[in-house]
């Protein structure tokens, strides 16, 4: 019997060069029209997220209204792509978003640690889907991954995928815990092979969360999969994306790595909780010419 580690082999990644490339793409100068269009794209790709122990119905309702209409003074702005919540609040979100194009995403599989029995993870997923989640953001078991049980990680993903049915599956690698770009690449390949529709960097609970370089490594895995199969996998950086400048940097990474076909909410999402207001401020600044202040935007 071959060990899982032998079975799963991915191309190596060079840290220095990948970080240099990711940083260089952060130097693109996004001005005027490109900025306006880019910020609009960013909003349309946003998974507006609340994942706190203190989440309540009220909090989720407020977030859902923000998702449908982010800026009351500019009704043409928005909506965002999805609202991302804990499984227990999926029903609330579904009801609040009824009639809107905003989708409901739910984290699942013992988020954020992924440390639970498979049956529990599957049940977690089944309920979220049953309550109406359009998208499932699952976490992989990093402990299993790091101890070399790659087959087990892949099996879990595949089984969650089965339970998802029509719901889209985003697989969270938690890149900040994987320790190397080689591992990020391997986990990306593994998640894609096991059935992920999207791969996602982080839970947002671990530092570092999304970084341009870890995102680039994942985009390269997606690109190779496309070259190999013609299938387009989606990408979602999440956590730590707080500013418009960062959001545009991620868009540039996608644009210059995967190209035009990925510049759509179907294939690219940004998971964030505080990013939206900064984007709204920048858009308002582009419109009005004056720098904005935070209190002109609702905190939800």
């Amino acid at each position: 019997m071959t060990t899982a580690a032998q079975e799963w082999s991915s191309p190596p990644v060079d840290r220095v060069m990948v970080e240099a490339r990711a940083a260089a793409l952060g130097c693109r100068s996004i001005k005027t029209d490109a900025k306006r269009v880019g910020l609009g794209l960013a909003i349309s790709m946003m998974d507006l997220t609340t994942l706190e122990g203190a989440d309540t119905q009220g909090k989720v309702l407020a977030l859902c209204r923000k998702a449908i209409q982010p800026d009351v003074r500019r009704p043409s702005v928005g909506p965002v792509a999805a609202v991302c919540v804990y499984p227990s609040l999926v029903r609330v979100a579904r009801a609040a978003l009824a009639g809107s194009p905003v989708r409901v995403a739910s984290v699942a599989t013992a988020f954020p640690s992924g440390q639970s029995a498979l049956e529990v993870k599957l049940e977690d997923t089944r309920r979220a889907v049953g309550d109406g989640a359009h998208e499932i953001d699952m976490v992989i078991d990093r402990g299993a991954f790091l101890s070399g049980e790659l087959g087990r990680v892949a099996d879990e993903i595949a089984q969650v995928k089965t339970v998802c049915g029509a719901a889209h599956l985003k697989v969270i690698l938690e890149t900040g815990e994987l320790g190397s770009y080689d591992n990020i690449r391997r986990a990306s390949d593994l998640a894609i092979a096991a059935g992920a529709d999207f791969i996602k960097t982080s839970t947002g609970k671990i530092e570092p969360a999304a970084t341009p370089a870890s995102t680039l490594v994942m985009l390269e895995a997606i690109r190779d999969h496309f070259f190999r199969t013609g299938i387009r996998i989606g990408m979602k950086p999440a956590g730590g994306v707080r500013t418009s400048k960062q959001a545009l940097h991620y868009l540039v990474l996608v644009k210059e790595t995967l190209g035009d076909d990925w510049l759509t909410p179907e294939l690219f999402r940004i998971g964030a909780s505080t990013l939206l207001n900064d984007v709204l401020m920048q858009l308002a600044k582009l419109e009005g010419g004056a720098y904005e202040a935070a209190e002109y935007f609702t905190r939800d």
Partner: peptide, 9 residues
């Protein structure tokens, strides 16, 4: 495909 979807100004 590169270029058309979101050109840089």
């Amino acid at each position: 495909r590169f270029g058309a979807a979101w050109p840089y100004s």
